[in-house]
């Protein structure tokens, strides 16, 4: 069933939800949009044809998070509380929602689930907003996703001008959108046409056929040197990435807490060992690690590419390094398969 939600009523709907859950929606910070809690006074910012600059993975894996506290009175460590508030995340783009499902394979793994991630996941309803006008830096269709990918979403919206078409996808999604007008069969067809057109018209950035095997063979190739030459070694691409999940654990003595902070394989200190040995001593190895992790190692773990094509790393790289072009150049580089002895 598809429903219709007038854009003029969106704010009111979000505000009404705040009585039963924390509601997050993209709002303007300076000149960009970021997911922020919806309060009395807020302005929705979904006008740009793409996602927020700061990735919504932070709603599930905050950049800094307390894992445990040291209780000086009892002289022992106590676990930090897992969040227990229901949440509704409105306006998340399909690439970011899909990224969350990819991260589930890391943080909701059966052997060792992460309680903080798990608690946030279990209590969040994701209302996605499909992309009828994907941007030039987007490439979701090239990585097994699409502008209307439903992965991880409880409902998906399609922009119809002054109205959103609402397609609830799960029970939780259904429960959010009650008492709405049902879309006519004709409208439903229009919606489908919009979705198909957006998907169809997105150019394919690179072919994935045999990509993993090819990349694995290129491990020692000099292309990495080439990519790394201009790379600054900053953390923009990985911190803005919706699927990058590496973190560091540090003790904050003054706060008596042990915290985890996002970390990135692009930093030299990330992999340096106590002995001083660094398995990834230069930008060459670090750039390779980032790309290989996404396009090769993830496939071994989940069978899926660890990239959802959101394009943030492309848009914000200060030296214009484009991961799509990196993949394309890799594909164009013949691999000299090393002899196995």
């Amino acid at each position: 069933m598809t429903y219709l939600l007038k854009k003029s009523e969106v704010n009111q709907t979000l505000r009404a939800w705040t009585s039963k859950a924390h509601v997050y929606a993209p709002q303007k910070v300076q000149k960009y949009a970021q997911f922020l809690p919806v309060g009395e006074d807020f302005e929705l910012s979904v006008e740009e044809p793409h996602n927020t600059r700061f990735p919504p993975k932070a709603l599930f894996l905050p950049q800094s998070e307390t894992l445990l506290k040291y209780n000086p009175q009892k002289r022992e460590l106590e676990s930090a509380k897992t969040p227990d508030q229901p949440r509704i995340i409105f306006g998340i783009r399909p690439c970011d929602a899909k990224a969350v499902t990819l991260l589930d394979s890391v943080f909701s793994s059966e052997d060792n689930p992460d309680p903080f991630w798990q608690a946030r996941r279990d209590q969040s309803v994701l209302v996605g907003l499909g992309c009828d006008q994907p941007c030039a830096t987007c490439f979701c269709t090239s990585v097994e996703s699409g502008p209307f990918d439903r992965s991880g979403l409880d409902a998906i919206l399609t922009d119809l001008g002054d109205t959103y078409a609402v397609e609830p996808l799960t029970e939780r999604g259904v429960s959010l959108f009650e008492n709405l007008t049902v879309a006519s069969a004709e409208t439903t067809q229009t919606i489908q046409a919009i979705q198909e057109k957006a998907t169809r018209e997105m150019p394919i950035a690179f072919g994935r056929e045999g990509l993993k095997a090819h990349l694995d063979e290129l491990f020692e190739n000099e292309i990495w040197e080439d990519f790394a030459k201009s790379c600054l070694g900053c953390g923009i691409c990985t911190f803005l990435c919706p699927t990058c999940f590496c973190f560091d654990i540090v003790d904050e003595v003054r706060k008596s807490t042990r915290e985890r902070n996002w970390d990135t394989c692009m930093f030299k200190v990330y992999s340096i060992e106590a002995s001083g040995h660094n398995p990834r001593p230069s930008r060459r190895e670090r750039t390779r690690q980032r790309l290989m992790h996404k396009y090769s190692y993830w496939l071994d773990h989940t069978g899926q590419t660890g990239c959802t094509g959101c394009g943030r790393c492309v848009r914000y790289c200060p030296v214009g390094l484009d991961i799509r072009a990196m993949v394309r150049k890799s594909v164009a580089t013949p691999s000299e398969v090393p002899h196995v002895d």
């Binding site: 950049q63 800094s64 600054l232 070694g233 900053c234 953390g235 923009i236 911190f239 560091d248 540090v250 904050e252 003595v253 003054r254 706060k255 915290e259 902070n261 990135t264 930093f267 200190v269 200060p318």
Partner: peptide, 29 residues
């Protein structure tokens, strides 16, 4: 993300003060 540091020609220290662990000069988060 330390892009400001990495983009700056004058920030070329082998070890930046934020990466120093003994002592830790600033909070990392």
């Amino acid at each position: 993300c330390y892009a400001c540091r990495e983009a700056c020609p004058m920030c070329y220290c082998e070890e930046c003060f934020v990466d120093h662990t003994g002592p830790r000069w600033t909070e990392s988060g």
